[in-house]
Write a protein that binds this DNA or RNA. Sequence first.
DNA 1: CCGACACATTGGTCATACGATTCAGAATAT
DNA 2: ATATTCTGAATCGTATGACCAATGTGTCGG
Lengths: 241, 241
Amino acid sequence: MSPSADPVTLHNRVLAELGPSIAAGAYAAGHVFTLDRLERDYGVSRTVAREAVRVLESMRLVVSRPRTGVRVLPREEWSVFDPQLIRWRLAGPDRMDQLRSLTGLRAAVEPVAAAAAAQRATAPQRARLTDLNRRMAAFGEAGDLDSFLRLDIEFHRMILELSGNEMFAGLSDVVAEVLRGRTAHDLMPDHPRPEALRLHAHVASAIDSGLPSVADAAMRAIVTEVVEALDGLDAYAGTGP
Amino acid sequence: MSPSADPVTLHNRVLAELGPSIAAGAYAAGHVFTLDRLERDYGVSRTVAREAVRVLESMRLVVSRPRTGVRVLPREEWSVFDPQLIRWRLAGPDRMDQLRSLTGLRAAVEPVAAAAAAQRATAPQRARLTDLNRRMAAFGEAGDLDSFLRLDIEFHRMILELSGNEMFAGLSDVVAEVLRGRTAHDLMPDHPRPEALRLHAHVASAIDSGLPSVADAAMRAIVTEVVEALDGLDAYAGTGP
DNA sequence: CCGACACATTGGTCATACGATTCAGAATAT
DNA sequence: ATATTCTGAATCGTATGACCAATGTGTCGG
């Protein structure tokens, strides 16, 4: 389905095991690996171990220094916008914190993006968005969560891209991970809430009509609802005192 | 000065040449390198060439496939939030587009972060921010642009961190790059504009007083001013028709 | 004209060796 | 006893050469 899936190479395999462990906090900041250790643990050659480490280093999960080894960096150093790292963390124990942070980001960006889209979208783009919304609603009402998710992702992606801001567009993978993460980890009801469907329709309609402030408000309502849903879960499975 | 500067290794050297070229668009999407070619061009071994490619691949600038080679990906695929990629692009010909996108992102995020900071900051944090602002203003009035820049970066970083949202905090390096980029590429006046200094003081004061909506508005004014400054430069060196 | 098969090209992986760096601890001088 | 210098081990950094696996290309036969 994905246009360019990562090839299943050995270093990707190592990365797929080592990355999530570190992201999950299995090794405290300051913990040190040696390459030799990684070679033996994963049964790979120095070449492969080094390439995996090199990628982890580029996301600032670790630093590699002679005589010291490969040291795990504190969380604050991590490149938290790396989609791969986000995926790893959403699969791990910080899932809820991660979702909360990401939702805060969405709340800041998506309304602005929707407003920009309402100003810039061309006629065929508006039509496509409207149609997308219509099909999305149909799947939502039918309770086909998988198809709904697929179109929901596409809906948000399209708006972020229509904003004309490359950085906003660059968040579409992040938003997709969040939406996917919510469904994959059973944080979604059986049917999307009707209120949410209506709000999505409002966004599509506002963009179609070229009303930036309405698009902003409707999108803001969507993400606000998500924030509240997360807080609700918190009260339910509270980690607090 | 930097707590953990990247070591000057051979693969970092290759990366520092190859990365900016690709980021600058010197190779069209679809252009193909071979590892052999890279080895000869940079006079390095396969090991080193591969590691550089692996990092470029992790930022989705290229994909590497057997029998094909290392193919440059279209811009839309790039991990535009990677601080290293941002630095490369700010040094290249897309500088203005890049600054515009990044400023749009700042405009969406920083006001929200300032509001959150006004709600959450502890007393000593508020004091430190106020002091930071005072010293910043002094350097600004004295026309010491380097010191001003350093504190300006720290000011914005502190607010993003005080927001309590990890993703916002993760943007502090990006914002730092933007601020540094503006100064390094002569997009700043000799003295910071007094209006800008006043607005920064308002932000600090609003956070100190625990007034989220005031902090939001003042920060919004700061970034709005930056947006307008950029548009002004556009009119000046217009690329349009 | 079309399809099947052999071949050449290219990245992926491995094993090994040596160099460069740096931290630790011993040896030495004060 | 303390400070300083030096020696050495540990570890990453880099290079080399070889082989494997996958895949596009071109040829040959129908």
